[in-house]
């Protein structure tokens, strides 16, 4: 089990601390998505690949029901960063 003290960063890409995430949980945020919107944790270059597990752990430890705590934030296009120029994909349908 990871030992986390309050100075520790939960989201390295966006430099969000454990304390900021805990604060959002105290304000009633119960899902990865709402924590992200409140703190930016998960909005960074890795799109939460590194921090979402840590946040989920915190949610569960703070007593958030599993249904909310384990709700995945939907993965969206592009799954890995791509340059604007590669949007020149054309065709019909969705990505």
């Amino acid at each position: 089990m990871l030992v986390m003290n309050s100075k520790e960063y939960i989201c390295r890409c966006e430099e969000v601390t454990k304390e900021e995430v805990l604060q959002a949980i105290r304000e009633g945020k119960q899902t990865l998505k709402s924590i992200k919107r409140a703190t930016r944790a998960g909005m960074g270059a890795c799109q939460g690949r590194t921090c979402s597990k840590l946040i989920t752990t915190l949610l569960l430890r703070e007593g958030v029901p599993e249904e909310e705590a384990l709700e995945l934030d939907k993965a969206r296009f592009p799954l890995v960063p791509i340059p604007v120029s590669s949007l020149e994909i054309g065709g019909e349908g969705d990505v």
Binding site: M43, A45, Q47, R76, P78, I82, P83, V84, V95
Partner: peptide, 17 residues
């Protein structure tokens, strides 16, 4: 982007919605 801000074409996109 190509028309108005061509220098951004190499910028990385992280997410869409």
């Amino acid at each position: 982007v190509r028309k108005f801000f061509p220098s951004l074409l190499n910028l990385n996109i992280l997410r869409s919605w």
